[in-house]
């Protein structure tokens, strides 16, 4: 996360993304969606997220945009103007509109989460938004276990095979949930052993500062949201 946007405060990014998303969901105007998409694509290189990661997290968005596009082309309402012809099909404005809007709704949150480190998010929520540290840190600790669960699942399948029972997917997934909860219980004990939830004050070891640059991120989000609203009314 060693890029300009990557270093910005998590709360600032959260606020900016919220503003833009809230504005975008109010309109179906392709121009508004295009503006958001354009701005975010321009911002993407400054987010410091490697291309591979962007792709790995982002493909579902593209896929669902393609899906809604296709759906509307084939089955959507026929009262909207035709804007293009594609492989013998009439592409109407509504298909383009829905697909663009889906991208515009998805992108702000996508970019924000991709450029935020979960630890920073928890810290920032605790420091700036006064979220209860018990809940923020508790959730963070549980989140750390997510990648370990894949390993756990592999081991559960192995164990069933070693014991001569068939490893059905359903029963293995249930086994995984049980194992995850068990890990959670141990983790909670380990956290209490190190003084978590002892009552009283708690410090935060990592610096979280909300500086001018962070305010700028919020301001940019606000500006983009305002543009979207303006475009919405400009067309009607």
């Amino acid at each position: 996360m060693n890029s300009w946007l990557g270093r910005r405060d998590a709360t600032a990014k959260l606020l900016a993304a919220l503003l833009v998303t809230a504005a975008v969901v109010t309109t179906l105007e392709p121009a508004a969606s295009l503006t958001v998409i354009g701005v975010l694509v321009l911002v993407m290189p400054f987010a410091g997220v490697p291309l591979g990661v962007l792709w790995r997290r982002g493909w579902p968005i593209l896929l669902s945009a393609a899906g809604i596009f296709l759906f509307t082309v084939l089955l959507g309402a026929r009262d909207s103007p035709v804007v293009a012809h594609l492989a013998g099909l009439e592409v109407r404005e509504n298909a383009v509109g829905y697909a663009l809007r889906l991208l515009a709704v998805g992108l702000p949150g996508f970019l924000m989460f991709a450029s935020i480190d979960p630890t920073d998010l928890a810290d920032s929520l605790v420091v700036h938004l006064r979220v209860s540290p018990r809940f923020a840190i508790g959730a963070l600790a549980a989140f750390r276990l997510a990648p370990l669960l894949a390993d756990e699942y592999r081991l559960i399948r192995l164990a069933r095979r070693a014991r001569g029972t068939r490893a059905g997917i359903g029963s293995s997934l249930f086994g995984l949930l049980v194992a995850a909860i068990r890990r959670g219980i141990r983790l909670a004990t380990a956290m209490e052993a190190r003084g978590f939830d002892r009552g009283g004050a708690r410090t935060v070891a990592r610096v979280t500062r909300f500086g001018w640059a962070d305010a700028l991120v919020v301001a940019l989000g606000l500006a983009l949201a305002a543009t979207v609203i303006l475009l919405k009314f400009a067309q009607t």
């Binding site: 630890t119 003084g195 978590f196 410090t203």
Partner: peptide
């Protein structure tokens, strides 16, 4: 099962944070 944070340094700092040790002393 007793590591809490995803970075080694943060994990060691975890107990100190819980005991409200000032930040300059933690690291």
């Amino acid at each position: 099962t007793q590591l809490v944070m995803s970075r080694a340094g943060d994990d060691v700092a975890f107990g100190l944070e819980n005991r409200a040790v000032p930040r300059d002393e933690i690291w």
